[in-house]
């Protein structure tokens, strides 16, 4: 019998390929991966499924981008344990500043290494 998952992560990205890569990287380390493809749907998933970590893309089509969704999560007191990792191809200072302003706990610049992803998730996933 497979060992139970030790951590639950929600990956939010409109690219199914990227969600697949994240799943591939994390699931073999006993991390459960949930998926959402828009900022709006990620909020529902976070509120209902309470993942420990949200891996959030910034640029997504629809009425809420990743930074807005991150801010909504961080502003919700019921979700204060949820860590948000912003994933983005935009790596300029202004982008990092915007991510910090939205309350992000970490910033992964695309393309990121699966090793970096796993290490970051493990580090942020440790219960304080």
């Amino acid at each position: 019998m497979d060992a139970p998952f030790r951590l639950r992560v929600l990956v939010v990205d409109d690219q199914p390929e990227l969600r697949k890569l994240v799943r591939l990287t994390l699931e073999s380390s006993r991390i459960q991966v949930l998926e959402a493809d828009t900022g709006i749907s990620s909020l529902d998933a976070v509120r209902q499924l309470k993942p420990r970590i949200v891996l959030m893309d910034v640029m997504m089509p629809g009425s809420m981008d990743g930074l807005q969704a991150c801010k909504m999560i961080k502003d919700d007191l019921r979700l204060s344990d949820t860590k948000v990792i912003i994933m983005t191809a935009r790596g300029q200072q202004v982008d990092i500043k915007e991510a910090k302003a939205a309350g992000a706990d970490y910033y992964l610049r695309k393309p990121f290494s699966p090793l970096e992803l796993l290490d970051t998730v493990n580090r942020l996933g440790q219960v304080q």
Binding site: L18, A89, P111, S113
Partner: peptide, 21 residues
């Protein structure tokens, strides 16, 4: 929201980065 035209470029770069590690 963001235009979707960037996604393929990012996906390719990400795939290559994954291939490395």
């Amino acid at each position: 929201g963001a235009p979707s035209c960037e996604t393929q470029e990012t996906a390719m770069a990400q795939a290559l980065r994954y291939a490395e590690d």
